[in-house]
Simulated assay, not measured.
Amino acid sequence: MENKYAQKLIEKIQKEVLQNKFDLNSIVSDLKKIREYSLEEQNPVVTKALRLAYEHLETNDAFLIGIPDDEPINEENEIEQNISEENDIESFEYFLSLLHDLSKKNNLLDLKEYNKAFIAF
Rank of each mutant, 00 (worst) to 15 (best):
S26V: 11
H100I: 15
E16S: 12
A62C: 10
H100G: 09
E11M: 11
E16Y: 08
N106R: 14
L98D: 00
I79G: 03
E113S: 15
L52V: 02
E78K: 13
F22Q: 05
A62E: 03
I73M: 13
L96H: 04
L102Q: 06
E41M: 03
Q14F: 07
N77G: 10
Q42K: 15
S97L: 02
I65C: 04
E2Y: 12
D70L: 13
D88I: 05
F63W: 02
K33R: 15
G66Q: 06
K12V: 10
P44H: 11
N82H: 11
K48I: 07
A117D: 06
P68G: 06
Y37R: 02
N82V: 05
E41A: 05
E78F: 11
L111P: 01
K32C: 05
E58R: 10
T47W: 07
K15H: 09
N43H: 12
V45R: 03
E11W: 08
A62N: 03
K33M: 12
V46F: 04
E90K: 10
N82F: 04
L99S: 01
Q14N: 13
I65D: 02
F95T: 00
L99E: 01
M1H: 09
E113T: 14
E55C: 14
L109V: 15
K112H: 08
E86T: 13
N25I: 06
L9S: 08
E16D: 15
L111H: 04
E93C: 03
G66D: 07
D61S: 15
E58N: 12
I67N: 02
N107Q: 09
E90C: 05
E75K: 09
K15A: 12
S84H: 07
E76H: 07
E40T: 11
E78M: 10
K12W: 12
V28N: 02
G66L: 02
D110L: 05
K15N: 15
E41G: 01
N25M: 06
K33I: 12
N3Y: 07
N106A: 13
T47E: 10
D88R: 06
D61Y: 11
L111D: 00
I13L: 02
E76D: 09
N107P: 08
I79S: 02
R35M: 05
E80R: 12
E16K: 14
F63Q: 00
I89N: 05
L18N: 15
E40Y: 14
D30T: 06
F95G: 00
N87P: 01
L96Y: 01
L50N: 01
E80F: 08
E71D: 15
L52Q: 09
S97Q: 06
K4M: 13
R51Q: 12
D23I: 07
E78L: 14
Q7K: 08
L18D: 15
V46K: 04
A62Y: 01
L24A: 01
L39D: 02
Q19Y: 06
I67C: 07
Y114T: 00
Y5H: 14
E58A: 13
I119G: 05
Y94H: 09
L31R: 00
L9A: 08
E86A: 14
V28E: 03
E36H: 11
N3I: 06
T59A: 08
Q14W: 04
N87A: 04
S38W: 03
E93M: 15
D30A: 10
